[in-house]
């Protein structure tokens, strides 16, 4: 089973992502800050990170920068309310950029696409 890490500071959004993504058959861990996320990533068993940008403390882009320095590369999907971050050069380090929406269709599709691209030999869903 693919393990996803969702970084999102809004509690109700975490609930939503947890439910919806588990329903899709993923193992889902939600954290509320970039710092927690970094600790989890270092534990090292996630296949993909869904990342919010605007968060109190360390923001998503900074976390993305830190992740670039990590040995094991994990694909990141940025999920932000701000379309303008798309033009931030740090965003290029992410695998995909989507604008937050109550319709999780795009997020789910993107997750699927990125996982298939990154782990072509595994067939886990």
């Amino acid at each position: 089973m693919y393990e996803l890490l969702v970084v999102e500071n809004e509690e109700s959004l975490r609930k939503l992502y947890q439910e919806e993504l588990e329903e899709e058959g993923y193992g889902v861990v939600c954290v509320s800050s970039a710092k927690e996320a970094l600790d989890k990533i270092r534990e090292g068993h996630f296949h993909l990170v869904v990342l919010d940008i605007k968060m109190p403390g360390m923001d998503g882009l900074e976390l993305l920068g830190k992740m670039l320095g990590e040995e094991r590369k994990i694909p990141v999907i940025i999920n932000s309310a701000y379309p303008r971050y798309k033009s931030d050069f740090m965003s290029w380090a992410a695998e995909a950029f989507i604008v937050k929406s109550s319709n999780l269709g795009e997020l789910k599709d993107t997750i699927k696409k990125v996982l298939t691209k990154y782990y072509p030999d595994e067939n886990k869903v």
Binding site: E10, S12, L13, K15, L16, K54, A81, K100, S101, L104
Partner: peptide
């Protein structure tokens, strides 16, 4: 305006998401 928009968007996404479910 940006702040306001952001503040509104998160609850909206949640409400909409749950409405969908």
């Amino acid at each position: 305006a940006a702040h306001l928009a952001h503040e509104i968007r998160n609850p909206l996404v949640t409400i909409g998401g749950f409405a969908r479910s």
